[in-house]
């Protein structure tokens, strides 16, 4: 059973929008809804991840083929994510016993350890809180949702895939690299960016900034379109 934690203000006291966010579905740039849930690693609160990045993701059901491929893929990127101070947390509307049996089955059949906890959201509390149920797809299975939550508890990215389409974990890794690069260097990343590529310098807001920009040594195609290496 999962139970919602009342102390949303404490959970997200660093986030200015916490009080507004607590009653609605997740929004980019807003505090992630607080929760406490039973997982395969014991009872965990969202606040336990304070100081680390978190990839909270849902899957439709245990012992299903696409989900199994996804878990193998998430397990494969877990070491790279850990290097980036990112933790994984899975979720489905299944029991802890089902999760444990499935994880053991994956170990037995594929030889892979699943290193991250999985929320047993039998009563759909966290799934409902995060809008992981898509009634047009299923009323009993969560869709393939991904929420990237930063070290201070802000939702930084959301990805939704349908039941039929397995996710691309390389893209999730790339997304984390992009978000962390953005935070570190105060830049944006262009389409299909990957680490090592040039980044986008935010457009200037004033004429004075434009002049400064053009003399700053950036690779500029025009005044609003400048790149640099980081």
């Amino acid at each position: 059973m999962s139970s919602l934690v009342e102390s949303t203000v404490q959970e997200t006291s660093h986030a200015p929008a916490a009080s507004v966010q607590s009653a609605s579905l997740p929004r980019l740039g807003m505090a992630a809804p607080a929760f406490e849930a039973v997982t395969t690693h014991g009872k965990i609160r969202l606040s336990d991840f304070h100081g680390t990045w978190l990839v909270l993701f849902s899957h439709p059901a245990d012992f299903t083929p696409v989900c199994t491929t996804e878990f193998l893929a998430f397990a494969a990127i877990a070491p790279e994510l850990r290097k980036r101070n990112v933790e994984l947390l899975g979720l489905s509307i299944d029991s802890t016993s089902s999760h444990i049996a499935w994880v053991r089955n994956i170990k037995e059949k594929f030889g892979i350890d699943i290193p991250f906890p999985i929320i047993a959201d039998s009563n759909k509390e966290v799934a409902t809180l995060y809008g992981m149920l898509m009634p047009g797809e299923s009323k009993t299975e969560t869709s393939r949702c991904v929420f990237v939550i930063d070290p201070v508890g802000i939702v930084r990215a959301m990805i939704y895939y349908p039941l039929t389409t397995g996710r691309n974990t390389d893209e999730i890794l790339r997304l984390l690299d992009a978000l962390q690069t953005t935070d570190k260097h105060k830049v944006a990343t262009p389409a299909n960016w990957k680490p090592g590529d040039k980044v986008i310098v935010p457009p200037p807001a004033t004429m004075e900034d434009v002049e400064a920009r053009l003399n700053a040594g950036y690779e500029c195609t025009d005044w609003y379109f400048c790149k640099k290496s980081v």
């Binding site: 690693h41 014991g42 965990i44 609160r45 606040s47 336990d48 991840f49 100081g51 933790e87 906890p117």
Partner: peptide, 8 residues
């Protein structure tokens, strides 16, 4: 992991 220590 820190989250596990906090929960534990």
């Amino acid at each position: 992991p820190l989250f596990r220590v906090r929960a534990g």
